[in-house]
Design a binder for these strands. Structure first.
Lengths: 140, 140
DNA sequence: ATGTTTATTGATAATGCTTTTCATTAAGGC
DNA sequence: GCCTTAATGAAAAGCATTATCAATAAACAT
């Protein structure tokens, strides 16, 4: 790993954060790079990747990986803390869900085994109502 | 897209299916290719990929994508019991844990939002007892 | 069995996302 | 302005996956 990022404020970082703030959806690094270029903010692709990673590490944005193996990013809506995503495996439609129960459960399990300093990752996948309807229609 | 697969039975396909059937866990295509080579079944990497894709399309196995963007596969019909992992972020020591509660919770949440055909991924990270002791000792 | 058809295989090349490298640039502090 | 070094970014490297395409071998007919 390299020197950790986020100790100086640069216009590139501001541009990436701003671009991400405007969109209320998951976008890939390359998408964001395009958006930035179109609007005239010349930011290197490498920097976009690095910045997104830094923002992710600091918990300022959410990442998840789509079915093509691409990482996609979004600014977290409710800064109201930790949450999970319910993602449609077909169209990507996402719902944010809270999971106090999960938090409690993982903490309990971990402590039971003597583990400390617990974190976890979790994603839920399913077919959203629209896509489910679509695929049953296709059956006929 | 090429001609769809699965119209002839070959030893390669049998080998891939068998390898996957033995393991009760998610494995990447390359992992499986290694497993096959070690046991003496010489199957080309390309064929492993193709076969896994075919098995996925026909619904015989599950895919999901890990946090590195790798596709990992598991033989479906998880009667053998779905479980999660509690992993030490320092030394990698892993404990397998069951999570009926999680299952129920994700299903409930998903149905609440109209999503169907639910799956989920989850990993728990922490410091195992040994590593925790080590790091407090280092403090002094 | 033998031949014919064509699905399947697999070594290699190509693709595409992401990370490294490293020389250059520019924040932040003096 | 000057210095230190974080940050940038073009180009190269890395890595999983997919496309190519000549060679092979199922399934089936003769």
């Amino acid at each position: 790993m390299s020197a950790k990022i986020g100790q100086r404020s640069t216009k590139q970082r501001a541009a990436v954060a701003a671009a991400l703030a405007e969109v209320d959806d998951f976008r890939s690094a390359q998408d964001l790079h395009d958006v930035l270029r179109r609007r005239g903010d010349l930011v290197g692709l490498t920097t976009v990747y690095r910045t997104l990673q830094a923002l992710t590490d600091s918990g300022d944005i959410d990442v998840l990986i789509n079915s093509d193996g691409e990482s996609i990013y979004r600014h977290c809506g409710q800064s109201a803390g930790h949450h999970h995503h319910l993602v449609c495996r077909k169209c990507g439609r996402t719902v944010e869900v809270e999971g106090k129960a999960i938090e409690r459960w993982t903490d309990a399990i971990a402590h039971e085994h003597g583990y400390s300093d617990i974190t976890h990752t979790m994603e839920i996948f399913g077919l959203c109502p629209a896509c489910a309807r679509e695929s049953t229609e296709a059956m006929s």
